[in-house]
């Protein structure tokens, strides 16, 4: 039981760091949904089934849906965001070139 808690905690921290630092926004949203399911597992390990059901339903189903809608409406669903000041392109070769140029000049 302690070993399970340690494994889930390490996964939690790793995937949450991934959701914040990964370059593609679509992957970040999917990672957030996975983190939410791991948090629901943590709640189960803490003997809180009510909270676990609520977190799994709201955090991983609803929140991911609203994020995907937001990504689609801001045209970010396949953009790579290297945090270089300009929202890098739409995942094509031209977009990656402009993204790396902006990242290089703003480093």
């Amino acid at each position: 039981m302690g070993a399970m808690v340690i494994v889930v905690s390490v996964l939690l921290i790793g995937l949450a760091a991934g959701a914040i630092f990964v370059r593609s926004l679509g992957s970040a949203v999917i990672l957030l949904g996975t983190v939410s399911l791991l948090v629901a597992t943590t709640f189960l390990l803490l003997a809180a089934p009510d909270v676990a059901i609520t977190e799994a339903a709201i955090g991983s189903a609803l929140t991911t849906l609203v994020y995907v809608l937001a990504l689609k409406r801001t045209n970010s669903i396949d953009s790579l965001d290297d945090d270089g000041g300009r929202q890098a392109g739409k995942g094509t070769a031209a977009g990656q070139k402009s993204g790396s140029a902006a990242g290089g000049s703003h480093a």
Partner: peptide, 19 residues
């Protein structure tokens, strides 16, 4: 810098506080 990523980070803070 990307505001959507700021909202994602806010969500992570929320999860941490609930745990």
């Amino acid at each position: 810098k990307n505001l959507i990523r700021v909202v994602i980070s806010l969500d992570v803070v929320d999860l941490g506080v609930n745990i």
